[in-house]
């Protein structure tokens, strides 16, 4: 299981600032919804694929995985539209969403998590006024991406350990027998991680702040 979706390549798209890519994504969304025609949706889809596969040289699998992930959702949407309005409307609605999903995949695959969180931090900048530390928001996002796979692995390990001793609970019981020990591990780990953050200067931040204004 991989959540770090970044695919390293030496391309123009990779080098573009994260903020620019996110703005472009937003602009594309606006365009697609402001001009809901088959031509615009089709052209946008082709354009997205050209940028992703051609310019950024991402593997087809990266985009295919995203498209597959939403296939049932798109199919359902198509059916609903086809029944309530007409087939062309259904088609361009689906094309539009597929384009956005793929464009978002291109952005995430060409942008490092740290660059993305730097943008989030900038957007959250004004929250500083109400006492939020934007660096912490960014760190929280990055750490979530880092630790979700770790937790999944720990949960697997607990299940394996239980299976090794003959346990193979199902349903609610399985949830209980896995979740309780996992929670203990998570709390222990949270403590260890906070120590590690401290040891690497996480609270050096006030130094940075005092230089401001």
């Amino acid at each position: 299981m991989t959540l770090a979706l970044y695919v390293p390549r030496a391309s123009v798209v990779h080098r573009l600032p994260a903020g620019v890519k996110l703005l472009a994504l937003a602009a594309l969304a606006v365009l697609l919804f402001a001009r809901p025609t088959l031509t615009v949706a089709g052209a946008a889809l082709l354009g997205t694929m050209a940028v992703g596969l051609g310019v950024a040289r991402l593997p087809v699998a990266v985009l295919a995985r995203q498209a597959l992930a939403v296939r049932w959702w798109l199919a359902a949407l198509f059916v609903v539209h086809a029944l309530t309005t007409d087939v062309p409307t259904g088609t361009h609605t689906v094309l539009r969403l597929l384009t956005l999903v793929l464009a978002a995949a291109v952005v995430t695959a060409t942008t490092r998590v740290t660059e993305m969180t730097a943008v989030v931090q900038r957007i959250c900048g004004p929250l500083r006024l109400v006492g939020v530390r934007p660096e912490r928001v960014g760190l929280a996002i990055t750490m979530a991406l880092r630790f979700i796979p770790v937790l999944i692995e720990r949960a697997d390990r607990i299940r394996a350990a239980q299976a090794a001793r003959g346990g193979s609970p199902r349903g609610v019981r399985a949830l209980r027998t896995t979740v309780a020990p996992l929670l203990v591990q998570v709390l222990q780990m949270a403590h260890d991680v906070s120590e590690a953050l401290d040891a690497r200067g996480a609270d050096d931040v006030p130094v940075r702040r005092s230089r401001r204004v």
């Binding site: 770090a4 740290t114 990055t142 880092r146 780990m189 260890d192 991680v193 120590e195 590690a196 040891a199």
Partner: peptide, 14 residues
Amino acid sequence: FVFQDPDAQIVHPT
């Protein structure tokens, strides 16, 4: 400071 369990010390995804 280096701890015993690297998983708890690595805080970024890559």
